[in-house]
Design a protein around this nucleic acid. Structure first.
Lengths: 173, 173
DNA sequence: AATGAAAGGTAGGAGAT
DNA sequence: ATCTCCTACCTTTCATT
């Protein structure tokens, strides 16, 4: 196993629709379901030799098609049993403000993902917290205090429903 | 490698804050960054024997702390270079409507994740599509046509910003 | 719960097609 | 680009502490 930490971000600048053949798609589909499949098992399922599989995998990582392999961890098991979506509007929208806010978000604990969106709102933050009190603190101490934040709105998340997977949606039917 | 596909969902009903010691957290933190770390490397980083690491890992999966291992795939590489957040409001909110809608969402291609939220809106769908035309089709053919959908609003996603990771936020500082 | 040893499985490269 | 074969490494069970 090459074990290059997360996958060196040596992407060639984000390729659009890398040329992926059926074998690549099969590998991706398997690895999206089970990222810890052994190379041997993967090769067998795709009907190719193990060494070929190794090379294909390396190529997919180097091209940035596979960005990383991640353990999918239950937030509740870490004591983060409350999730919320927080809508954020900035007062000014220059490059500096945007970059500043994003830099902050990347290190804000409790933020799972942030979306920069078009429209009246600027950001949507998906967060996980232990308690309602922690959520309030997050909003009051780390968001409304940020220099260019003009408006914040919080929605409780009842449930997160996974979609059918990326590869299922790939390439036109 | 035990290779039980995704991780059999034999969770004990969703444990809240499973008892996780420092070693467990170290393992989770590593695996969140690199889910394909070998057991040997993981053991070394955590300062435990390889056989111990195997057991810890098995336990974490069996308890549902680790739900799965997934390849993180670049949507653009699959030709899905446009992302959006779609807000959905239902007309009626009985159990049947909610379950029906969720069942539909789970099989809707292009849906990466759906959030069931509290408030004026009922759902937020994170989708990835190849083109603006495909987005329009998704909304018109698969959402507004659903029986209990009353209102749909679409926001373009400029950028998805990853948070610092779940484990970073775990347990109070 | 954690460990070391040992058997069996796996990874990735060299060289040929 | 793919394959077969080979060696070094990895995984895991089990007896032991």
């Amino acid at each position: 196993m090459s074990d290059s930490s997360t996958t060196q971000n040596a992407h060639p600048a984000s390729l659009d629709a890398a040329r992926l053949d059926g074998t690549d798609l099969a590998l991706l589909a398997e690895l999206e379901r089970n990222g810890r499949l052994t190379n041997a098992a993967l090769a067998e399922r795709a009907g190719i030799a193990e060494s070929t599989c190794t090379q294909r995998l390396r190529s997919l990582r180097e091209r940035g098609v596979i960005r990383a392999f991640r353990a999918d961890i239950d937030p509740a098991a870490l004591g983060l049993s409350l999730q919320a979506l927080i809508t954020v509007r900035l007062g000014t929208h220059g490059r500096e403000q945007v970059h500043g806010f994003e830099r902050g978000v990347r290190t804000l604990p409790n933020v799972l993902t942030a979306f920069h969106v078009a429209g009246a709102d600027d950001y949507l933050l998906h967060v996980a917290v232990p308690t309602a009190a922690a959520l309030r603190e997050l909003v009051l101490d780390h968001l409304t205090t940020q220099p260019h934040v003009r408006h914040v709105e919080t929605q409780l998340v009842f449930e997160v429903i996974p979609g059918p997977g990326l590869v299922a949606a790939g390439q036109p039917a």
